[in-house]
């Protein structure tokens, strides 16, 4: 990293032959920056203990595992769990539902906070804006049990809307269930998602708007040519991160609503793992499903990153 002093003396230095610079080894450089490195330790420990060490548990996917026998006492079964998994018709249902919900979330739920942030940003009164912001943040802090109960009371068969429109009930309709899931997710988390976009909007230099205004750009054009391009780096970053967890489409939300619409509509990979592993005791198959999901997630992140770079963006690594 260059400092102001170094920059100032650079021109002068260029006139003289450069003195031979001693190359430091990696170890020496780490030692030199040892105090900086200590700041990494808590974060690194966190990932080590809660992310990397638990990954070792994936060996269960290759074992006939039971908790009491443990990793050491459970026999190895090779790829038997994967064979059982891929010949299981329920996996196909779970995978299909997961992918459909994920795609819908990507198309409908991902842009929602951007749109909301732009909408709120266009509000002139900061007081109104703050109030609306607070209101739209709130659902994020409700648990899924409460969210679904509220939706039930409003859109369910015995709910508010059905009191006006006889027979109205979207909560038990298996055909529209996936859209319902996305709508609930948007309602719950859209407001919360605007925070990061607000920060990005605040980071766009004011002079760009002024310059655009001088050049005759109206409000719509300023949003299109200044604000939106300013949001692209953050949106790309979030999109790549979202794609990594795309197959995690909401465990509690789906588990709670599955009895109403049925497995055919609401079984996803996470509920599949729960039913097989935690309830069914088929730890090997459940872990194999989890591992399968992890591998797909990794491939998607790598692909999305590459794609972002190819489009001229920065990617995240």
């Amino acid at each position: 990293m260059s400092t102001p002093t170094a920059t100032d003396t650079r021109v002068e230095d260029a006139a003289r032959p450069a003195p031979p610079r001693r190359r430091l080894t990696l170890r020496q450089r780490i030692w030199r920056e040892r105090w900086t490195y200590t700041f990494i330790i808590p974060g690194a420990l966190f990932f080590l203990v809660f992310a990397y060490v638990p990954m070792l548990g994936n060996v269960v996917a290759f074992q006939d595992y039971t908790p009491f026998r443990g990793f050491g006492g459970s026999p190895w079964v090779g790829l038997a769990n994967f064979n059982a998994l891929f010949s299981d018709p329920e996996l196909l249902i779970a995978l299909r539902n997961t992918l459909i919900i994920a795609a819908l979330q990507l198309v409908l739920a991902f842009p929602a906070p951007i749109a909301l942030a732009l909408l709120l940003d266009s509000l002139m009164s900061s007081r109104v804006r703050r109030m609306v912001q607070t209101v739209v943040y709130l659902p994020h802090f409700l648990s899924w049990v409460i969210v679904i109960s509220v939706w039930q009371q409003v859109f369910g068969g015995g709910g508010l809307v059905s009191a006006v429109i006889d027979g109205f009930d979207i909560m038990t309709n298996a055909d529209t269930f996936k859209l319902l899931v996305v709508a609930q997710a948007v309602w719950k988390d859209c407001g919360w998602g605007t925070i990061i976009f607000f920060a990005a909007i605040a980071g766009i230099p004011q002079d760009r708007y002024e310059a655009a205004a001088i050049d005759g750009a109206g409000a719509w054009q300023r949003m299109r040519h200044v604000t939106l391009p300013g949001l692209v780096p953050v949106a790309t970053l979030l999109l790549i991160l979202n794609i990594g967890s795309i197959l995690t489409v909401g465990f509690e939300q789906l588990l709670l609503q599955q009895p109403m619409v049925g497995m055919e509509a609401a079984e996803v990979l996470d509920t599949f793992v729960y039913f097989r592993g935690v309830l069914g005791g088929e730890w090997g198959i459940a872990t194999a499903a989890g591992l399968f999901k992890g591998v797909i997630g990794t491939v998607l992140v790598l692909a999305a990153n590459k794609f972002a770079k190819r489009l001229g963006g920065e990617g995240i690594f």
């Binding site: 109960s149 039930q152 369910g156 068969g157 015995g158 059905s162 909560m171 709670l256 009895p259 109403m260």
Partner: peptide, 11 residues
């Protein structure tokens, strides 16, 4: 049946 008879939290 109550329309919410199948839900996790029936009336």
């Amino acid at each position: 049946f109550d329309p919410v008879a199948m839900t996790a939290n029936p009336a």
